[in-house]
Structures are given as structure tokens and as C-alpha cells.
Design a binder for these strands. Structure first.
Lengths: 145, 145
DNA sequence: CTGAGTGCAAATCGTTTGCATGACC
DNA sequence: GGTCATGCAAACGATTTGCACTCAG
């Protein structure tokens, strides 16, 4: 599991110093299932730190990504971050357009895809976008009679 | 087919004026198989027009996208444009990381994917990245003795 | 104590907008 | 000739960088 302690241990073992901000980041991401935009992270952090600056958030997100703790995905409205999934079990995601939470898809289309021999595959992306159960219910509750 | 004439006719029928720049854009995209970054479009256009400005390129790319002539995809290094594929035959793409050309994949993984009933699917993305035949050969020719 | 982490300000990059001039139809 | 298209410059948002100060180890 990706517990707070896991993340902190990982950063510490790579020579990073464990500051309060980084502890808070570890907590935030260990508790969040979905993708977070830098702005959202900044706002969350801002609750705990008065003199917080945007660039430090960016710096830490970047560091944690390079360290392999986080992964970044580029959406239409900018890059977002989430905890890096274990490489062990390769999978893809369903992503809720409302709340941003992700749900794993174990099926990998690459097995079924007929790639010509002369195309050297490096990586692939398979993402399903839509609305999760909770958000669908909320929606129908809000609009319903 | 998406010939220059097709594109121009499409723009003209929507009330757009056919300027030299737009003719050149139509030509460029009708001849390009892959994705083009705004900068690349600007550089290409710059060959023909001395006093070209970046914002006009952006404006025209945007207009052509809204018109449905082009489609935009967001990559790690920014948005890029290509001719909009016919909707008729739904398909996905292999994209060459070197030259940016795209090749169709007729297989659609959604048919095989087991989506839970409570997730309301809106759209999906399936992309295979790698190196096409031509770029692999160039690479090996350059590095090989 | 010493270097890594931080906040601040400014720089940078890609993209958009307001306005006056110029060109299509 | 009226309107849309263009170029210019400036605004803009997201992200990065240089520098002096602070704090974790």
C-alpha cells in the first residue's frame, strides 16, 4: 500500500529532507484517489501554511514525480498528479469527469491489437472517461423531480 | 478525401473568407499525415509570408478546429493539430514519436472492455506510441556502422 | 554547521485579446 | 464599402528560475 509512511520513507531514502510541507503532501496524496491539479494542491496546502508559495508546490510535485512517487497526466485543462500505481500489475483507468477519481481496468488492449511488425511500440494509453456511480446519482438527485 | 479544395469549400460555405494564409493552411494540412504544433505551422507559413504573426496562426487553427476541419490533441509538450478524421469509421491511432505521423488502428478496445454498469461512459482514448518504419530505419542507419 | 528547501519576484513559454489597418466578396 | 482578417503589442495563465534566507539532518 501507499501509506503516508511509505511515501515519506521513499523520499527520505532518496536523500530528500522531510519538511512539514512534504509530510502534508504525502498525506494528501495517500488519501486522494483521483487526479489533483497543482492549483488544487496549492489550495489544500494553503489551509495549513499561511506563507505558502506556488513555486514550492510545483517544485515538490516535480520532485515527487521524478522520484516515482507521483505520476503526471496531461488533460485538456492542464497537467494533474496522482499517486503512482504499482508497476507490478499493469492496468488502465476509468476516470470520472466530475470528481476525478480513477478506477482500474485490468484489461489491456495491447494484447488484442494487431500492430504491424515495422512499428516499434514504446508505450500506449487507454483511458475511459465518464461519470462514476456516486456522481451519476448526485446528478440525477439534483435534476430529478 | 480531404483535398485542399474540400477544405476550402468547407470554410467558404461556413462564411469564412478565403485568404492566402488559409489556402496555405489548407494545403499544409491536406499534405500532412501527422500532428503539427502551432509553432511548426507558424514556421511553415513563415516561408511564404514575411510579416506573419503568431496570433493569426492560432486564430486560424482555432477557427478551423471549431469548424470541424481540424482536430486538436493535447500531448505532453502541448496541443497539436491534424486533419479531422471522418467520424464514419471510428478508429484509433498509432503515433510516431519521431515524425508525428499517425496510422489508423481499426480495433477498438471498448468492445472488449468490461465496464461496470454504474459507470456512465462518455468517451475513451486509445493511443499507441512508438516509431514508424521510416524513422526506425533512419535511426539504425545513423547509428549503425 | 552545511546544503537542501522555501518564499519572493521576475523571467519564460504558450496562448489569447484589443485595437487600428488592410483585404475579401 | 462593409465586414472579416491580419499584424502589432500587450495581457494572460501556467510553470520555471535566480537569489537570499531558513531549517532539517
Amino acid at each position: 500500500m501507499h501509506t503516508i509512511e511509505d511515501i515519506i520513507r521513499r523520499m527520505s531514502s532518496q536523500g530528500l529532507r522531510i519538511t512539514d510541507q512534504r509530510k502534508t503532501l504525502a498525506k494528501l496524496f495517500s488519501e486522494t484517489q483521483g487526479y489533483l491539479a497543482p492549483k488544487e494542491v496549492y489550495e489544500y496546502m494553503g489551509k495549513s501554511y499561511t506563507g505558502l508559495s506556488f513555486d514550492t508546490v510545483y517544485r515538490n510535485l516535480r520532485v515527487m514525480e521524478e522520484l516515482g512517487v507521483l505520476e503526471q497526466v496531461i488533460f485538456e485543462d492542464g497537467g494533474k498528479f496522482k499517486l503512482h500505481c504499482r508497476e507490478l500489475d499493469h492496468h488502465h483507468h476509468m476516470i470520472c469527469l466530475q470528481c476525478g477519481k480513477t478506477y482500474p481496468i485490468t484489461f489491456c488492449p495491447m494484447e488484442q491489437t494487431n500492430v504491424p511488425d515495422d512499428f516499434q511500440v514504446v508505450k500506449h494509453k487507454f483511458e475511459v472517461f465518464g461519470y462514476c456511480k456516486a456522481c451519476v446519482q448526485e446528478e440525477s438527485a439534483a435534476s430529478g423531480v
